[in-house]
Design a binder for these strands. Structure first.
Length: 527
RNA sequence: GCCCCGGUAGUUCAAUUGGAAGAACGUGUGGCUUCGGACCACAAGGUUGGGGGUUCGACUCCCUCCCGGGGCACCA
């Protein structure tokens, strides 16, 4: 709707610049456009004059979808026709999945790479933000018509992996190196005790031992946590697998941009040169990442890639793009969502995650304490680029203050009406009758508009990758739903009258289920 | 020192990327013989960190300064 309207307005007003249409849903109207400002500028005329000239033509052309088009303060405000909302209502009752679906993505292949945590220990809080963002963005892209592939890049080689091996050996009191960099912690003790044989067998190959142990960590620590978050990857991509032949192919292609210095192979870049192969002959992570992305875009033909990265990887990401340019991979193929650090607030104390100090908060512990859903909700609620403070006590509260709870409660109380009524046979639902009852109910219409525009909101998120728009929109809609709930009594003494009103409740419940599904949180029938 | 992110109502944050400053919580007032009151309605609350610039229009872009956080490895 938005897209089409923008194009129609551009054509009607003959503007060079593409006008903008925004969903506003406020006292001004449902949609608003700046087309008159643009036309005014391009033709050096007052917006009002232009509107007077074009008014009749525009109204005629757009009469199908809008009952009113208004000129206010230079803006053009559009009011949706009610017929459209009746259609939305029917869909919400009968085919709720369609509330979200659109073909914005044209089935283009997108790879969303996220989490990609080093398999050297359990997931911590920061990883959680990454995982949640990646999952939600994937769901949005799927619903807006992209063909989405979710991938975890498994860094199963290199220095960290060697240190993992060495750390294991040190637990067994075997001679090691790099003493002060070794991993510690209960999980490691557990891991070593369970795999003693393995450790002794490969005590002379710490890197390989680390690799074997990293497999166990992925299997027995990381994957279970992902399962409890309801996140499933399509693939775990092994960094090791890049080094069979692809590495030579890529190195050959970028050869002209490399040079040798101090025994290492460097890649020349605009901002800062990077080492590809260390003087000890080992490839760096940077080289791996170049090969990996070459594989994504050239070998596997993904049209777009989205990577969810912690803020500390920002520079790395930028240089990766530079390197990919050398390989002929266009910059706009790869997008990053960069997120900032996560803090935890417990009562008045703010705990800062710091690996060095050892106050790591494991994701599992947090899930155990507050449950997976509040975490998922709050991690998408805040824009990625802000420092997020997760309020532990708030997430557990059962009051309005806790927006997660408020939203879930809204669904539960609607559901309770359906429960109270008992069995509902789908065939007998009369949407039309219900529409007649509520079509002049202001609150109900407002909610339907929000359901109508849900699709557009998803497209907006797919375009901008600003996931926080979703929970905000859901909270606002829940507010309206509760308002409606309070003002309309659904269950009446006369059962047949109640029956006529039920489709309205079914539509709202279905919408919430669809919205929650997008955020990967559960619709609860009881709180 | 260089680079990145943030600074908006008492608080936590939005503002669909240059378009009408908005939510939620908290506060104040009003509403319960309750389809779940664990709720709802209304109201007050703003010089968008400071200053300058570009623009019909700036929280948004440019310059500069201040405050908070993060990053600057032959680590990943």
């Amino acid at each position: 709707m938005k897209n089409e309207l923008e194009l129609k307005l551009k054509k009607l007003f003959k503007t060079k610049e593409r006008p903008q249409v925004r969903v506003i849903l406020n006292e001004y109207g449902d949609l608003a456009s700046n087309v008159l400002f643009i036309a005014a500028k391009e033709n050096k005329k007052e917006p009002k004059k232009i509107w007077d000239e074009f008014k009749d033509e525009v109204e005629k052309r757009l009469a199908k979808n809008f009952e009113k088009i208004e000129f206010v303060n230079g803006y053009l405000n559009f009011h949706l026709k009610k017929d459209l909302l009746f259609k939305t209502f029917k869909i919400a009752v009968k085919k709720p999945k369609q509330i979200s679906l659109s073909n914005f993505g044209h089935k283009q292949k997108v790879i969303v790479e996220f989490l990609s945590a080093n398999p050297t220990g359990p997931l911590h809080l920061g990883n959680g933000r990454n995982a949640v963002l990646g999952e939600v963005i994937s769901r949005v892209l799927k619903k807006t018509g992209f063909s989405v592939f979710k991938e975890y890049y498994n860094n199963n080689r290199g220095r960290q992996i060697k240190i993992l091996g060495l750390s294991a050996l040190s637990f067994l009191k075997l001679p090691t190196e790099n003493e002060n960099e070794l991993y510690k912690g209960k999980y490691l003790e557990e891991l070593v005790n369970k795999n003693k044989g393995l450790c002794f067998k490969f005590k002379d190959q710490p890197e390989y031992l680390g690799y074997l142990l990293s497999k166990k960590i992925l299997e027995f620590y990381i994957k279970p946590t992902l399962k409890s978050l309801g996140i499933k990857f399509d693939n775990f991509f092994s960094e090791r697998s890049l080094y069979s032949s692809l590495d030579k192919e890529v190195l050959q292609k970028i050869k002209r941009h490399t040079y040798k210095k101090d025994g290492a192979l460097w890649l020349k870049l605009e901002t800062k040169d990077e080492v590809l192969i260390k003087s000890d002959g080992e490839p760096t992570y940077f080289l791996s990442d170049i090969i990996y992305h070459y594989h994504k875009f050239v070998k596997r033909n993904f049209k777009y890639g989205i990577n969810i990265l912690g803020a500390d990887h920002l520079d790395h990401g930028r240089r990766l793009k530079e390197a990919l340019k050398i390989l002929g991979i266009k910059e706009n193929k790869l997008k990053f969502i960069i997120y900032q650090l996560v803090y935890v607030k417990k009562f008045e104390k703010i705990l800062k995650m710091s690996k060095r100090k050892g106050d790591i908060i494991f994701l599992d512990d947090l899930i155990k304490e507050v449950g997976p859903d509040p975490i998922k909700f709050y991690f998408v609620f805040h824009p990625p680029e802000t420092h997020l403070t997760f309020d532990l006590e708030l997430a557990k509260k059962k009051t309005e203050e806790n927006l997660y709870w408020y939203v879930v409660y809204t669904g539960a109380r609607l559901e309770s009406i359906l429960k109270k009524f008992g069995k509902i046979s789908k065939k007998e639902i009369d949407v039309k009758k219900c529409w007649e009852i509520f079509k002049d109910n202001k609150q109900f219409i407002e909610i339907l508009k929000r359901i109508y525009f849900w699709k557009e909101i998803l497209i907006e998120v797919a375009k901008s990758l600003q996931v926080q728009i979703l929970p905000q929109y859901i909270v606002e809609t829940c507010k309206k739903i509760n308002n409606f709930y309070e003002s309309e009594k659904i269950i009446e003494k006369d059962r047949s009258k109640t029956y006529q009103k039920l489709p309205a409740i079914i539509a709202l419940v279905n919408f919430l289920k669809e919205a929650f599904d997008t955020l990967n949180i559960e619709f609860k029938e009881k709180v």
